[in-house]
Design a protein around this nucleic acid. Structure first.
Lengths: 338, 338
DNA sequence: TTGAAAGCGCTAACAC
DNA sequence: GTGTTAGCGCTTTCAA
């Protein structure tokens, strides 16, 4: 059909102007006469010209690519975040380049390096904990960096790199501890997954348990599975935890999948919820109030985190002016299972 | 920290060889002496050199980017597909560049054009229906194109562009019709969402209804909501459909979310499932068997579709040799709600 | 096995 | 408002 794609030069020749003028028209640069613009645009249309981004980005040292590094799409959290990011980016004519670590933190550094080699206009990363080398690369890259999900920077040296947007995972853990205690539960357990490798869940749990301690309560049982989180895993873990600690009266799960699994276990075993055992999740997925008993959980603003991150990239100073840390807050949904 | 990133030239100077030799070492080109390789690698390490992909891709007219165009991440289908794609791509040192249409087909053309301007090594698209202009761009781009999800090419002119990987949406529609009829249902309705703009659900429904007709049954009710699919929408639609057609004995939903919503409606209204009303979904999400009654549905191999698509890109002839159409098949899960 | 020259397609910097 | 020049950092020739 077409051997080679038309270039700026072809458009310039056809419209009888210089290449740079074509370039300016294509980029909507200021100070272009209407007649020039028209001639160029018509020639471009005629040839079906599309700019070669590689060349433009190479020369200008900047691209319309935004790198997004998150653990995985196979969960209920990041798809909505990425959707939010891309919604805003695409309205700005920018593109999302994905880097998925598959929950293997050791891959992050390589992914960051690789993505930086595309001269992205900015980078969005999940979490605040990154290797020293990663941090060095990012600060040296001279592009805005947004860390999302977590804003508990207190004990992370050098965090945030530029801007952090998310919620306080610790505050969330404390909120759930307060809620369960206020409801009268005293023998409280915990179930996690992924070996707690997303540090966010670890932080949340530690804050949760610390708050229980402030209430005079010791953790009454804890199970952190190494595997991927799922409903089935939640079911198993709930069973195993109850076996090990039969006198539990409440369990906080690291996410809603696990908690739904816990609820299923209770239904199957005829364990009264919340009479005999209370259950709570985290995330606030759609699904969590679709069950016969609506799950008590904490709703996080996932889409908005993504949108806000993309917006800050477009106007980095906006984020910095706001104090480099943007707390989007969470909502504890006290429903039927506590 | 660092003013400018080191370039090939810097590495060449430090190691005392030519730029092209450095380039060859970095790309693992053949016919490189061990001593040269060592000298170059040590210099590169010393400088912290990372290749500039923009320059390399500009010159070589090819990149390690793979463009992925799908409707959205806010559903239960594409996150798993993208995860599968990225799993395979990243093992090949390739990167996913995302283009989300947000279920607006009119955006697809612009997104494809924009993504092609990055000289991707290949493109993965959801669905077989694309505008004439899109098709022309893609065939002219000289890169392998994989269309995923749907393999019903019969009435799509020029499909597949290169390779199609997925399931027969029509066969799935027919399978569900057969299943419901075999179970004895005769007054069968349908609920869809998104205005059926993913043509896949439309195809599936038409085949479903055509098969019912073969069984001598007319559609007993049909509701296609224009909104985004969700559990809540399924609930509403189920209610409205029953109002309009109170004598329905079964409903096929375009996806599991909607079907779960339908089940909730029935539970809330005390409608016996499947005694009074049978329900079936589509996709086979984890969640669909987490309910008190495990949803009858059709399981689609989402992760495998993504993996297979990425694999075909790495070895385009593999896919072409296989006949340009790869049917990954589906499984009808006949469970508690039919 | 290594190198020299040329240029991918575009845009920054500077003219006019 | 428009054009000229130079060169981004790399890889493809081609030569030795």
């Amino acid at each position: 059909m077409t051997g080679t794609r038309p270039t700026l030069r072809d458009v310039a020749r056809l419209s009888g102007v210089s290449e740079i003028s074509v370039s300016r028209v294509m980029r909507n640069a200021p100070n272009i006469s209407a007649s020039l613009r028209e001639r160029v645009e018509s020639a471009a249309r005629q040839l079906g010209y599309t700019p070669n981004r590689l060349a433009g980005a190479l020369k200008s040292q900047t691209s319309n690519l935004v790198a997004v590094v998150v653990p995985s799409m196979s969960n209920n959290v990041f798809p909505e975040v990425v959707d939010g990011i891309d919604r805003v980016l695409s309205a700005q004519g920018r593109r999302t380049v994905l880097g998925l670590t598959q929950y293997d933190d050791s891959r992050e550094e390589g992914i960051i390096r690789e993505l930086l080699s595309w001269s992205p206009a900015g980078m969005i990363l999940a979490g605040l904990e990154h290797s020293r080398a990663s941090r060095t690369m990012l600060t040296g890259a001279g592009i805005p960096v947004v860390e999302i999900m977590d804003i508990d920077t207190a004990d992370v040296a050098g965090a945030p790199i530029d801007v952090a947007i998310g919620i306080s995972q610790r505050a969330a853990g404390r909120a759930m501890a307060d809620h369960l205690v206020a409801r009268g539960y005293r023998r409280i357990g915990y179930v996690g997954a992924w070996g707690e490798s997303p540090d966010r869940s670890l932080k949340r749990r530690l804050a949760f348990e610390a708050r229980l301690a402030e209430h005079g309560l010791a953790p009454a049982g804890r199970l952190i599975a190494p595997e991927a989180s799922s409903i089935g895993l939640g079911r198993q873990c709930c069973a195993r935890l109850l076996e090990a600690a039969p006198d539990l009266d409440a369990v906080f799960f690291a996410n809603d999948d696990l908690a739904v699994g816990g609820l299923l276990h209770c239904m199957a075993e005829g364990i009264a919820v919340p009479g005999r055992l209370a259950l709570a999740g985290f995330n606030g997925i759609d699904f969590a109030d679709a069950l016969p008993q609506r799950l008590t959980t904490i709703r996080t603003p996932r889409g908005r985190m993504g949108e806000a991150a993309a917006q800050v990239l477009a106007d980095p100073d906006g984020g910095r002016a706001a104090g480099a840390i943007i707390d989007l807050g969470f909502t504890l949904l006290a429903r039927d299972t506590t």
